[in-house]
């Protein structure tokens, strides 16, 4: 059974399709990079898989089931820019939010939840900053906090929107180490990635996306010059095998 299974997914915003007829299979325990130019629909794909957007057509199955039934098995790391970092809250608080779904209504996070959150912070080496206000963090530290928040979700499938965007080299290394340890415990990670240089060293598989799926599969097979040119060559996407 595949961790993520996308069939004929089409997502349209107002007039124009943002994603067109996407098919995708991701096996469990795979780190997959989603690569493509700006406006290629990378974030849209992630949001569609998370059920944040309603597709115009197609189906998405996570671990063989429709999204709503397995939503709690998915972890999400949004782009850093999507939230207000001046919000009056601390690092630990943000990480605890990852547990809000599991804690259930009305109940407050207790000692065991705090411990869990601290453990997640330890994994991203942020325990020392647990009580900092989030405004005082650097870009890399903000990203680590988001990662920690996803880690406490204890998901089976992680969707990350540009987890390495604008972070320092140390943070990048640390995040990649975490992604690799997630893989070794059988988790699946789909991450939007911008740096073409590092795709092959960081990820197992890659999805080349430009509104359509250009290619997907093991990096060694798919990440070729021809495919990249198809992905980035202007705004034109051509399907393989079209006569």
């Amino acid at each position: 059974m595949n961790a993520v299974e996308v069939r004929d997914l089409t997502v349209a915003y107002r007039e124009s399709p943002v994603l067109w007829d996407i098919d995708l299979d991701v096996a469990p325990g795979v780190l997959m990079a989603i690569v493509g130019p700006n406006g290629a629909g990378k974030t849209t794909l992630i949001k569609a898989i998370l059920g944040l957007l309603k597709p115009a057509a197609g189906q998405i199955r996570i671990l063989g089931k429709p999204y709503r039934r397995v939503a709690s098995l998915m972890g999400y790391v949004p782009q850093r820019g999507t939230v207000d970092w001046d919000f009056p809250t601390s690092v630990l608080d943000v990480v605890l939010m990852g547990l809000y779904g599991r804690i259930g209504w009305v109940r407050r996070p207790g000692r065991s939840e705090r411990r869990e959150a601290m453990e997640a912070l330890e994994k991203v080496e942020m325990t020392g900053l647990a009580h900092r206000q989030i405004r005082q963090l650097s870009g890399g530290q903000q990203q680590r906090v988001f990662l920690a928040r996803a880690l406490v979700q204890d998901a089976r499938v992680y969707l990350m929107d540009e987890p390495l965007q604008g972070v320092d080299a140390t943070t990048e290394r640390a995040i990649i180490d975490i992604l690799h340890s997630l893989r070794s415990s059988g988790k699946t990670v789909l991450a939007v990635h911008h740096d073409l240089q590092t795709v092959s060293s960081y990820f197992d598989e890659v999805l080349l996306l430009n509104v359509r799926r250009i290619a997907s599969g093991p990096v060694s097979k798919v990440f070729t010059d021809t495919n990249l040119r198809l992905t980035y060559g202007g705004r034109i996407a051509i399907i393989k095998g079209a006569p």
Binding site: D8, T10, E15, W20, D21, I239
Partner: peptide, 17 residues
């Protein structure tokens, strides 16, 4: 209208592939 046009496009692309 768009829904139908959209569907037709998807259908022809599917058939073409």
């Amino acid at each position: 209208h768009q829904k139908w046009q959209f569907a037709i496009k998807m259908l022809v692309i599917h058939l073409l592939q």
